[in-house]
């Protein structure tokens, strides 16, 4: 099923991207091209192959439940577009 303009608009809306008409058209063709690659991959017989979530041969990387405080929280907040006292501030979100 090819990607249509309405699909691009729906995904852009979910990702809160404001696309121009030209970008929308370009993405329709680019996404269809990507789906085309997938179709090529689909030619492979993958019956009996376990789905892979990660390509690296590693698993279960965990850390101990220990508190390691981050010292420069001021730097984090300074990087925000806006703060109010101890809080990050954003335009009011409608509930």
């Amino acid at each position: 099923m090819p990607v249509e303009l309405k699909d691009v608009r729906a995904v852009a809306e979910l990702a809160r991207l404001a696309l121009t008409a030209e970008e929308e058209t370009r993405l329709v063709s680019q996404l269809n091209e990507i789906l085309g690659f997938m179709e090529t991959l689909n030619e492979l017989d993958t019956r009996g192959v376990e789905p892979t979530s990660h390509p690296v041969p590693m698993e279960n990387v965990t850390r101990k439940d220990q508190i390691e405080p981050f010292a420069a929280r001021g730097d984090l907040m300074a990087a925000a577009p806006e703060v109010a006292g101890d809080y990050y501030r954003v335009p009011r979100i409608m509930d």
Binding site: A84, R89, V90, P91, R92, I93, D95
Partner: peptide
């Protein structure tokens, strides 16, 4: 946690 206050929303992470 979000606190809605006036024209802003304040966030505590």
């Amino acid at each position: 946690k979000l606190i809605h206050s006036g024209g802003s929303s304040l966030i505590d992470y």
